[in-house]
């Protein structure tokens, strides 16, 4: 089931990426119209990429407000910089690259204290016991969200892109201007840190699942 879930997620992603990019000619025409500042074209382009961009931002920020701000910044930047898109990569990867860039710059300054995160997690556990909702499958999600948010921006991004959004290391390497090897090792680092945060709640999770 786990393998299936992963595969499903990956396929979904590949499919969407292909859908946008195989129609490269359409995209290119759209890009040209955007370059002229045609608002309707900009809106079309926004429609094509907004969900991907918004999801990346949302998973990085774990906050609706921040995700909206980042998405806004990303698209404004896309339209302002669209002249510098040379067509040597897929347009989609160029868009995601800008997004990733903005996300990382947005969160890089911020430092979360580990103790604070540990405290937040234990509070969450207390509240969950009180709440006792019916759906059991996603009980761990709020914990994971909090723990992800505690990772440093760099490898949080990689975790979000690989494990949540389903990109391949190859794609991540291109988006983040790093090597595939770095992408892999940083993912490992991220997962390891998440494990440390979540281990205390594992028993609880298993009793629920």
């Amino acid at each position: 089931m786990l393998q299936a879930a992963i595969r499903l997620n990956k396929n979904k992603n590949v499919f969407q990426a292909k859908k946008n990019d195989e129609s490269g000619s359409i995209d290119w025409e759209l890009v040209q119209r955007c370059r002229k500042g045609e608002r309707k074209a900009q809106y079309e382009l926004y429609q094509l990429y907004k969900d991907r961009v918004f999801n990346i931002a949302y998973r990085m920020a774990n906050s609706q407000q921040d995700a909206e701000d980042i998405t806004q910044m990303a698209f404004v930047r896309v339209f302002q910089k669209i002249d510098s898109f040379r067509g040597d990569s897929a347009f989609s990867s160029w868009v995601y690259r800008l997004t990733v860039n903005i996300c990382i710059n947005h969160f890089r300054r911020e430092k979360r204290k580990k103790e604070l995160v540990v405290h937040e997690l234990s509070e969450l556990a207390t509240n969950l016991k009180i709440l006792k909702t019916n759906e059991q499958t996603s009980k761990m999600k709020p914990f994971l969200e909090k723990a992800i948010r505690a990772l440093p921006a760099g490898y949080r991004m990689i975790f979000v892109l690989y494990d949540i959004e389903g990109y391949k290391h190859e794609e991540i390497a291109e988006m983040m201007n790093i090597s595939e090897g770095t992408s892999k090792s940083q993912l490992h680092k991220a997962r390891k840190e998440l494990k440390q945060y979540l281990e205390p709640y594992l028993a609880m999770y298993q009793s629920l699942a």
Binding site: L8, K50, F54, D163, I164, L198, L202
Partner: peptide, 24 residues
């Protein structure tokens, strides 16, 4: 392995969020 599996599975099954219409 169990912890890792849990993390990977939970991560790959987050629900998709949708950008609000007001964003445009």
């Amino acid at each position: 392995l169990k912890t890792l599996k849990m993390i990977v599975m939970e991560a790959s099954s987050f629900e998709r969020v949708v950008a609000p219409d007001s964003l445009w």
